[in-house]
Every structure is written in structure tokens, then in C-alpha cells.
Design a protein around this nucleic acid. Sequence first.
DNA 1: GGCAAAGTTCGATGTTTATCGAACTGTGAA
DNA 2: TTCACAGTTCGATAAACATCGAACTTTGCC
Lengths: 113, 113
Amino acid sequence: MKEYPQPDLAAITLTEVMHALSDPWRVGIVRSLLEAHGREFACNELPMDLSKATRSHHIQVLREAGLLHTRVEGTKCMTSLREEELNARFPGLLDLVLATEPAGSDAGKSYAR
Amino acid sequence: MKEYPQPDLAAITLTEVMHALSDPWRVGIVRSLLEAHGREFACNELPMDLSKATRSHHIQVLREAGLLHTRVEGTKCMTSLREEELNARFPGLLDLVLATEPAGSDAGKSYAR
DNA sequence: GGCAAAGTTCGATGTTTATCGAACTGTGAA
DNA sequence: TTCACAGTTCGATAAACATCGAACTTTGCC
């Protein structure tokens, strides 16, 4: 598979990270990863009702904004949160995501739009 | 002039507020208001190199996302940050804006793109 | 080799967005 | 009332974005 270049977090602006988090699906992904406490996810493990292409797109946006790390493992690509780095560069950001309850707070497994 | 309806912050999602802050001009406005420590600004006091129409647009986006309060005073409209409410609803958000230095950190008075 | 599984890339499409100038609306003052 | 000032609203335009199905690429496995 491909290589996954990781941007240097120092070069990411607040605006860019905010843009990455301005989509409900993407906030949902970050929240899931936060709640999973370090566990990695394969793309299609994320319970989103979207096509493969769109899912891949959202993960790419998050990766390019410095939020995600992706490791290739066989045919899968395991994705995790760059938690420590993010806490250093944008202190309070992840806490905010975790503390702010999702829009449709009835949602259980799969993300609400 | 018009009335300025204020949304209830409880109804604003994290995604919406993130979207409002996903533009460099708008982050600049919020940062200015934060640094001004409670002082109100008239629209055209904000040192942005944009047309009146665009400036008005950005302020509207921020207002509709619950970030700004606008008070009519004569022909001007004085704008301020809903600081306390925001700290209650999105704890850490404004600290984050304040703590994260602007992109072009050489910028002095007027906002960098 | 042949095949399935997991992602990515490639158009295409429809929606949203930022931006502007121009026209409009109130307000206050001469 | 006439004028200027501060904002808003209205097209219009160009760029960015979300979304999908289809085609493609890698990898692992039989």
C-alpha cells in the first residue's frame, strides 16, 4: 500500500485543525478514538454509514490536519490518534471534543449526522 | 437597523463552532476580542483588509455560531465576545484560541491570511 | 496464478463557501 | 430634507467540499 506522510504538528495552524473538526463525521471519528483509549482502528471498523471512498476521504483530511496516525498492516491500515502531540500543540482541544456531547445524544454505536 | 438574534449556546454543536473558527479571518476576530478583554468593537474597527460585505458576512457567521454578541448603537453595531457563556458551554475553547499563536506570527495590527 | 479483502484514486455531481461591487436601509447631524 | 456614515442584502462568480460508484493497487491466501 501507500506511505502515509505525517505533517509536523508545529506547522499546523489552529484554523486547519478547526476545519478538520468542522464535520460531524470527523468529530465522531476523533471521539471514537479518544474513547477507545489508544486502540487502533481499521478504516472499515469505524461505524459510519458512508461509502468506502468518502470514509477514506475523511480519514485523509484528519491525517493531513495532523490529527491521525496511520500504520500499514498487511492490507489494512490501522489508524490512531496523535494524542500526546496534539495535547502539546493544541492543549485542551481533545478534552473539548471529549467533553462536548455529540449532537444527537441518543446515538449509540454509529455516528449521527 | 436590524435586530440581532442570538442563538442559545446549548443548541450549538461543537461542529458548528469549529466551522465558524475554520477561517483565519474569523479566528483573528475572536483573538482580537479576547485580547481586548471585554471591549466592544464596531465592525469597521476590525483591521481586516476585506470589503464591507465580506466583513459583515464573517461577523454574521460568528454570531450565528453563538460566538459574538452584537448591540446596536446608533448607526454602529458594537460587537463583543460571549466569553462567559462560551467558557461554560465549550470549556477550553477560548483558551485554545488565545494560546495558539497566529499563523504568520509576524503579524501586528492587521490579520494575516 | 487467481481471487477476495481493504483502501486509494478518479471523474462527476451537487452543495456550500468566500469574495466583491452595487444597491439598499436606518441613523444622526447640518 | 438632504447628506454622509455604518451595516446589510443581493446577485454573481469562482473555489472548495462532500459524496458516490467505478476502476485501480496492494496484500494475503488458496
